[in-house]
């Protein structure tokens, strides 16, 4: 397994005349939690889509676990998990059935499926909603289920696309605890609009502006680069072009 779990080289995605991701070069280490920050339309979700083999790059290359996202997607898919912006769950299946379904999709046999479901239910404290249909869950529970479904296949890399979008503060804090508990055990790429979320959870941050990484580093490095005392101020300074990365 390579030291860098994710690597992109001049990764570019164009939709007609619009360049959604522009020559993105990035390395994310094994076990690292990397946050992509940016305003709407900055290219965060498009980047995630390319890294999860959901979208083909227009040019450039992306590698996950040493495999190419364009030519070796069948090797990448078993080792990744994704929780999309919308809670992608089977609405009429119960929480348990959703988890069992995903485990079977990853090819687990009956015993392994039962073991993974029990473990995931315990890790995410899903016991009280286990036999409830996913469509009847609150937003917070749905997000938790969505992330649990992304993890049940024992991925090496987890992609969380705005996992706390639209959640109240308590549900958000609860999800932070879940994400924090995963840190170190797998590589996590998280996109978010929330500065405090990125500040709280990330090992490193990348700030995307108009499809480019405008700044990348640890929180102290970004603050030092911008001369600001908070991530929000640093983000605004970078977004407004006051500061550019050397």
């Amino acid at each position: 397994m390579p030291v860098n779990m994710i690597e992109t080289r001049n990764l570019t995605k164009q939709y007609g005349p619009k360049t959604a991701v522009n020559s993105l070069s990035l390395s994310i280490g094994k076990g690292e939690l990397f946050s992509l920050l940016g305003v709407n339309g900055a290219g965060k979700t498009t980047t995630i889509r390319m890294l999860t083999c959901l979208s083909a790059p227009t040019s450039g290359e992306a590698f996950v676990g040493g495999f190419s996202c364009t030519g070796e997607s069948e090797k990448i898919k078993p080792m990744i998990g994704i929780s999309t912006q919308d809670t992608a769950v089977a609405e009429r299946l119960t929480v348990r059935e959703n988890l069992e379904f995903m485990a079977r999709i990853y090819g687990f046999d009956k015993e392994k499926t039962a073991e993974r479901v029990n473990r995931t239910v315990a890790d995410f404290h899903l016991e009280e909603v286990l036999d409830q249909r996913a469509g009847t869950l609150s937003g917070g529970w749905k997000r938790k289920l969505s992330i649990a479904m992304a993890l049940i296949g024992e991925p090496s890399v987890l992609f969380l696309d705005e996992p706390t979008l639209g959640l109240d503060v308590l549900a958000r804090r609860e999800l932070w605890r879940v994400i924090e508990s995963l840190k170190g055990s797998l590589t996590i790429v998280l996109t978010t609009h929330y500065m405090e979320e990125a500040e709280h959870l990330s090992d490193r941050l990348g700030i995307m502006i108009s499809g480019r990484i405008a700044a990348c580093g640890t929180l102290p490095e970004i603050l030092e680069m911008t001369g600001k005392t908070s991530l929000e101020d640093a983000f605004v300074a970078i977004a407004e072009g006051e500061v550019t990365e050397e």
Binding site: T52, C53, K77, I80, T84, D86, I105, Y106
Partner: peptide, 13 residues
């Protein structure tokens, strides 16, 4: 129409 298929597209399906 939803994102359920998108999630499954990123699996070995």
């Amino acid at each position: 129409a939803g994102s359920f298929l998108v999630r499954l597209y990123a699996t070995p399906m």
